[in-house]
Amino acid sequence: MATLRHSMVAPVLLSLLPAALGLLGACELFYDPAAPPFDDRLTSTVMVDDVFGDLRRSDVEMTVLDNGSRRYLLVRGRDKGGGERTVAFDEDLKVRMSRSDVWDIRNAFVDVNGNFVVERMLFDRGFSLEEEEIYDNPPDSERVTGVATPSGVVLLGVENHSLEAGPLYDSDWNELNGISSNDIHPDADANAREGFRLKAAQHDVGRARSGLVLWNDALSRVFVIEVSASLAVDMQDPGLAGGTFVTDEARYITVSARDYDPVFYTRRGVVVLRDKRDHEVFDIDSGERLDTYHVASNAEFAFAYSPDGRWVYTLDKSRLRLYKARTWW
């Protein structure tokens, strides 16, 4: 009997060993502070010192565009000449586009043809420029993104307390319909001088959903609203009925964060980067925090998550090295 008991203990202990080692590895004390984040999940890396200059004291923005078959990482930062530059890296981290006249990359989107739109520039699937100004009648807002729908592309912008939907463009970028205003959230005071701002948008083309990341100055909170293609069409024409808010029709979460904390909408959760050290993943249905990754290093990094939630890109601003890794949760 005793022998049998002993023979059962060993397999149980062995089966618990990976879990115990995993727990050990999860503790911050057991992270190498010099190791870049996610280096144990690295799939590829490349030096970008031939493109960018000193990034240590400059803002760097990164976002990922995915049209379902091709995925690009857009990085905007200071180049070697000291000017601002936007670079598109393909899945192998090869440079496919490098321009100094592209600015608002956080709201870039994919059109109904699978092409990419950054500001008003249209790039094809290989990220070659097709049109300098693909549309000329944006909503009256500082930043604009677009949602690809079966009816065409609906531009979305945010103006104080309302979401401006439209115009609607067909697959050849002909304007079909105008703009409708839609109240965003009942807690937002329509009379307040400081309302919502569109910070970023990520587009999950495979699920026909887009995540709008809004910042509300009066509430000091981040709103992440998931807009489906059909809702985008409805908001554009005829627009939501009076008394109906966007958040009544769409899934959304509010997150306590700061204005400058990067937020990424992904298929597998909303990622909030607090002080660029803690990466927190929230479930957009429940609002619960699913997981947290603490970056042990105190170095300067920029991050971006892919819309499918499978990839995380890291740029070491000091070494000028770009990493692509699988997400941890």
């Binding site: 990976p18 080692l21 995993g22 050990l24 590895g25 999860a26 190498d32 190791a35 280096d39 144990d40 999940r41 699988r326 997400t327 941890w328």
Partner: peptide, 8 residues
């Protein structure tokens, strides 16, 4: 630096 977690 293998962390004994899925994906590591």
């Amino acid at each position: 630096r293998y962390r004994f977690e899925s994906g590591s």
